[in-house]
Amino acid sequence: MNISQKSKNKYSDSSTLIELLICLAILSSTLYPLVYMLQLSRPKHPSSQNEYLATLLAHHATEALVAKRALSPEFLPEIVSNSPVVVHKNSANRPHTLFDSLMPDGAQMNETNDPEVFWAFKPFNFSIDTYIADNNFYKVICQVNYTSNNLKSRIYFDKLISLNQSTSPANGGDSDD
């Protein structure tokens, strides 16, 4: 083998390696869109912002109920259906009394005195369901309803109130579910 043949072989060797590396680079880069598509197809976290705010409002209502019961143990909430959380301009429905203290000064929240929070709360409605369980317990279900992506959703907290105060263990005979 002479020198010219050797250099020719070397040239052909290096071109084979470069072709292989180019193939690998293309193959690697084609994987990224695949990974991106998989990433997009991942289910999003179930807790959306609306869902979280509804949870906070339902928590507020339940805690307000606990506070009311601590001050007046005879208080039992009544059934409420779809009352707004804030005062709507064109609606005759008033917010439930559990949502009276939305402002530090005790005023009703409206779109002028606290617009940022008002618009955040506007999509939500509040309901209370009650029923007597086992003749001794009064079950209260505080629900916050909202519409998200044309789907009606709700968040609810349960509260079990003992009707027989003498057997109440603590906290006015109430228990959290």
Binding site: E63, A67, S101, P104, A120
Partner: peptide, 27 residues
């Protein structure tokens, strides 16, 4: 609240208007 002195209400408003406010109460 004057009517409910045993209820502490907390309201936090983030600087980013796209984020939800924190609003809830604690007995």
């Amino acid at each position: 609240n004057a009517n409910l002195p045993n209820l502490l209400t907390v309201r936090l408003l983030p600087a980013d208007p796209a984020e939800i406010p924190f609003f809830t109460s604690f007995a």
